[in-house]
Design a protein around this nucleic acid. Structure first.
Lengths: 222, 222
DNA sequence: CAAATTTAATAGTATTACTATCATTTAAAA
DNA sequence: TTTTAAATGATAGTAATACTATTAAATTTG
């Protein structure tokens, strides 16, 4: 695992003021991640966040319109981070099939070690994505937000992997459907494993989720 | 498509008073489905529901603890309904592989026609499941609610199909993971198709989602 | 150093998510 | 058919949420 001390760009449609560009902004992100992970997105409020930070609530609104936009920011950050990881892992590799294997590994392996150096804790963020990211998409404003580019990071990441699939098998018709099925499925199953194990045939310890989806993926494209 | 005028049982852990057993209760369910579909779960409130029904807000709390429990009730109703559909479709069929094909068809085909006779509109309910069901599961109370049996309908349905998979191929190790991947994936992709089509390779009209998942399913178990 | 920008401190509002009380209607039991 | 119980209606009230507004202090930039 390479250490990724790179800046992650997030679309400026997602914030009022860029949290990456100030100390308060970075404090907001760091504490938001901790709090959302601890309380869950429903119980998480700007009031509680402001207390954790020690700044007035009104200051938070100068960075994010509301907690939904903050969640969108975090999800976008995560998908950009994953894409960057994929790019680094597949760099300078000739064989498309090896590149695809590397990419799929990044998408299916658990995010375990804390490789974060910056103000973003990727392990906690991964947990937030698993538990809360569905809420960022499933709103009545999806279409408007989609037009604004609020899901571009996700689309870009999916497209990048889908392109490798296309290289490996140009005749396969559903590369993006396969990649998004894989990504969402892995997250879903990790949540089930932890909370509704009756829906999985997996056990903590052995990583049957990774195995299952890698198998699924390559069966589909061959 | 058979007309299913059968009663659907939902665990009594999910409600304070059984909405199925009174006119007001049925009005609550009918209007809740309409409102959640129209407003989305976030904007949906007991206040608005009470106005739609013409009863005081306090009356709603005599049926459901809060709107989250109401959503849980609806999701459970849906999974029980789907399971009943599967049971009816596979009744008196000898061949396990044909039974499995029928079951998978029920799980993957779109819910289009309004076959509802009772107070539950299954077409709207299906839309609610696609758009909102993730929110019923992704809460900090999952584990407690799981112990109470709040997800039994879902588990039962998945298990029933997983058992047919086992009949067809007893050596396949992940029947439940495969079934839940299929169910969740189909819903996810239907949502993407409507709102984030860039994540799909599917188009409105031709049903590549159904095709994709049927293909995926049988490639995995063979 | 002056000007502009950012943050702190405080206050205030409409809405949400409930809880409580009591009168009235409806249904079931005697 | 009366009596009783259960369900509903009507109304009120509260703490918390999700903001908006204003002004003062601090910090950064030119």
């Amino acid at each position: 695992m390479k250490n990724l001390q790179v800046t992650i760009d997030v679309s400026d449609k997602l914030f009022v003021r860029n949290p990456d560009a100030s100390i308060l902004g970075q404090k907001i992100i760091r504490n938001a991640i901790n709090l959302i992970d601890k309380l869950g997105f429903e119980a998480f409020t700007f009031k509680k966040l402001s207390i954790a930070i020690g700044s007035p609530e009104s200051s938070l609104y100068r960075y994010f319109e509301n907690k939904h936009m903050l969640l969108l920011y975090l999800t976008n950050w995560y998908w950009s981070w994953l894409e960057k990881k994929i790019v680094l892992e597949t760099l300078n590799i000739e064989s498309p099939i090896v590149r695809l294997e590397k990419a799929i590994t990044v998408l299916t392996e658990p995010v375990l070690e804390d490789i974060s150096v910056s103000y973003v804790n990727e392990v906690l963020l991964n947990r937030i994505i698993i538990a809360e990211s569905a809420k960022a998409i499933h709103t009545k404003e999806v279409d408007k937000e989609n037009r604004k580019g609020c899901f571009d990071s996700y689309k870009n990441m999916v497209n990048r992997v889908a392109e490798i699939v296309h290289e490996v098998n140009p005749r396969f018709k559903y590369p993006r459907m396969l990649v998004s099925t894989l990504v969402e499925g892995v997250h879903q199953q990790r949540f089930f494993l932890k909370h509704l194990p009756a829906l999985t045939d997996s056990r903590e310890g052995e990583d049957s989720i990774t195995n299952f989806y890698i198998q699924l993926f390559f069966k589909m494209i061959s």
